[in-house]
């Protein structure tokens, strides 16, 4: 669907993007990750043709992107604004018409979304009468009003309370299921794990990582397993002997423990369970995969240290 090929961009002496290539498939949610100043927003602006790249091309469905493609893209920037003196309806009509819709189409689609979000009575309200979260909802509606094939969202959850975050998240999943492509730039790693199919990490203007979330986690796992049990910690430790290494321990209640264990030698998860059964009462056991937060920090932190 979206293919970014060898994009470079510099602003005078500062290199914002250096030979970045990545792609998002149809019907997937693609996470664009990176610390502040990494070049994510510049890349998003290039995809939206707000900024021209120095080198490289953007393709949509294999064809070099033109302004015509913008009608099929929905873009919600991080620093998003609305005209305060306009009503919700006028705003939607204005932005919808800029995206190629007729006034009648906009009105019909706006009614659909307002009903869906149960905010029909906001229609005639002026933007300045809305709270920040309400305005963010209106902004989201304006972004998806023209039913774009490609949706680009920069920090879509900022300003939303947990309930509305969930609402937007479910909506994005629904759109993905309808075959829409969603590019999501966010610092919210939990949401990346929850809804992103694939991610790319940009740091210091270069792409450092790209792939499926599950694959990336799998590649970076450290052979850690977690056991939640009831019983005696000494009995647990004695059972392990030297074949396993306790990495850390949590003690949420009196005789409840969660212990993370690393295998030594040729030992496997099965071996771990075998030595523990009968010694403690195991409630749950699972393989510990690195979180996207851990992966993000592990990649970015050394680089930051180098930079310092």
């Amino acid at each position: 669907m979206l293919s970014v090929e060898h994009i470079s961009k510099s602003f005078f002496r500062k290199q914002a993007l250096d030979d970045v290539s990545l792609g998002a498939e149809k019907g997937e949610i693609f996470g664009l990750l990176g610390p502040n100043g990494a070049g994510k927003t510049t890349l998003i602006r290039i995809i939206n043709r707000i900024v021209e790249p120095d080198n490289g091309v953007v393709r949509i469905n294999g064809a070099i992107m033109t302004r015509k493609h913008l009608e099929h893209i929905g873009y919600m920037p991080e620093e998003r604004g609305l005209y305060k003196s306009m009503t919700v309806e006028d705003h939607a009509v204005f932005l919808g018409r800029l995206r190629g819709l007729s006034k009648q189409d906009v009105t019909a689609k706006l009614n659909y979304w307002l009903d869906k979000f149960e905010i029909g009575d906001w229609k005639k309200k002026r933007i300045e009468e809305l709270s920040k979260g309400m305005a963010q909802k209106v902004q989201f509606i304006c972004t998806v009003l023209h039913e774009p094939e490609l949706l680009i969202l920069d920090e879509p959850y900022s300003g939303f309370d947990p309930i509305n975050t969930e609402l937007i998240k479910n909506e994005l999943i629904h759109m993905r299921n309808q075959g829409k492509t969603i590019v999501l730039s966010t610092h919210n790693m939990k949401s990346v794990e929850e809804i992103c199919d694939r991610v790319a990490l940009i740091h210091h203007s270069k792409k450092l990582l790209e792939g499926r979330v599950a694959d990336i986690q799998e590649e970076r796992k450290e052979g850690l397993y977690a056991i939640r049990f009831r019983g005696n910690m000494i009995a647990f430790a004695n059972a392990l002997w030297s074949g396993f290494e306790v990495v850390d321990t949590e003690n949420p209640s009196d005789n409840l423990f969660i212990v993370r264990v690393k295998m030594r030698g040729e030992n496997t998860f099965d071996d771990l369970l075998k030595v523990l059964i009968g010694q403690v009462k195991i409630e749950a056991a699972w393989e510990v995969l690195p979180t996207m937060q851990d992966i993000f920090i592990s990649i970015v932190q050394p680089k930051l240290t180098e930079a310092l």
Partner: peptide, 13 residues
């Protein structure tokens, strides 16, 4: 200052 310009520039030159 209210940043709507970025939304507009994604639709118009």
């Amino acid at each position: 200052s209210n940043r709507i310009v970025e939304v507009l520039l994604a639709s118009v030159r």
